[in-house]
Amino acid sequence: MNPKDNHLSASTTLLEEKQPVDLKEEEQGIEPKGGRKKIRRHSEKRDFKHEETYHEELMDRVIHVNRCAKVVKGGRRYSFGALVVVGDRAGQIGIGFGKANEVADAVKKATESARKKMQRIVRNGDTIPHEVIGEFSGGKVLMKPASPGTGVIAGVIVRSILEAAGIKDVLTKSLGSKNPYNVAKATFKALLQLKSRDEVLHKRGKDIPLASQPITE
């Protein structure tokens, strides 16, 4: 008998003895018969609806974009820095800064940074509870409460931050540096200094009036 025929018959016998693989066992991560490797198939479902709702609730606005040029051997290399404010128009606000070689990447970094640094501020309806001054480096911003219907009397940078925080009636004045970064951070510091009437009374050790206390049953 030809040795080639013996080799073919032996390989045919091995193929007949090999059992079919159960696909259900593979999906469950069970090792099938025949010594094949485990195969795990995971079907992860992302909740895109929740992510879209989260982004729709927040308002993000680019306050300032700065371009920086670095002179190199082949010419000039540009980079961009973006300052972004994020708020829910209900008293929660954050400011972030991002830098990248493209404007879109810089804005994305700044937006992510602002969302991580969001803090809640105190409001009195649509205005602020009291007069306050915020300072940061050379920037200095004065804010005063205003009657309903006054609107936001402020510059472009301060207006963007106040609108993101949900403040609709306020009087402001920038008294220091005109640098956008200093003005924005001075405005943010001023908003963080705001305190409610109950907080001031509690700090002074006085009793809070019954009218302002929450009703508990």
Rank of each mutant, 00 (worst) to 15 (best):
N6I: 14
N6K: 14
N6G: 02
A10M: 09
A10R: 14
A10Y: 10
S11T: 12
S11Q: 15
T13K: 15
L15W: 10
L15D: 11
L15Y: 09
L15P: 00
E17T: 07
Q19W: 02
V21F: 00
V21Y: 02
D22A: 11
L23D: 12
G29K: 05
G29D: 11
E31L: 11
R36E: 09
R36Y: 09
I39A: 00
R40H: 13
H42Q: 08
S43I: 14
E44S: 08
K45N: 11
F48H: 09
F48D: 07
K49Q: 08
E51G: 04
E52M: 13
E52Q: 13
E56F: 05
L58Y: 10
R61L: 10
R61C: 11
R61V: 12
I63L: 15
H64C: 07
H64A: 10
N66L: 04
R67P: 04
R67L: 08
R67A: 14
V72R: 09
G75E: 11
S79P: 01
F80H: 10
F80C: 00
A82C: 10
A82G: 05
L83W: 06
V85P: 04
D88C: 08
Q92F: 00
I93V: 15
I93P: 10
I93F: 03
G94T: 02
G94Y: 01
G96R: 04
G98C: 06
G98I: 05
G98T: 06
K99C: 02
A104Y: 02
A104C: 01
D105T: 05
K108R: 14
T111N: 08
S113I: 07
S113N: 15
A114S: 12
A114I: 03
Q119Y: 08
R120A: 13
I121W: 00
G125P: 08
T127P: 07
P129V: 05
P129N: 10
E131C: 09
E135L: 05
F136V: 05
F136W: 15
G138Q: 12
G139K: 02
G139V: 03
K140W: 01
K140E: 11
M143E: 04
G149Y: 12
G151K: 00
I153M: 09
G155T: 04
R159M: 04
L162Q: 08
E163C: 04
A165Q: 01
I167D: 10
D169I: 03
D169K: 04
K173Y: 01
L175E: 01
G176R: 03
P180Q: 14
P180M: 09
Y181L: 13
N182Y: 07
K185S: 04
A186W: 08
T187D: 06
K189H: 12
L191A: 00
L191E: 04
Q193W: 00
Q193C: 07
L194S: 06
S196W: 03
D198K: 14
V200Q: 10
L201R: 15
G205T: 13
D207I: 11
D207S: 15
I208K: 02
A211I: 14
A211L: 11
S212L: 11
T216N: 13
T216P: 00
T216D: 07
E217I: 07
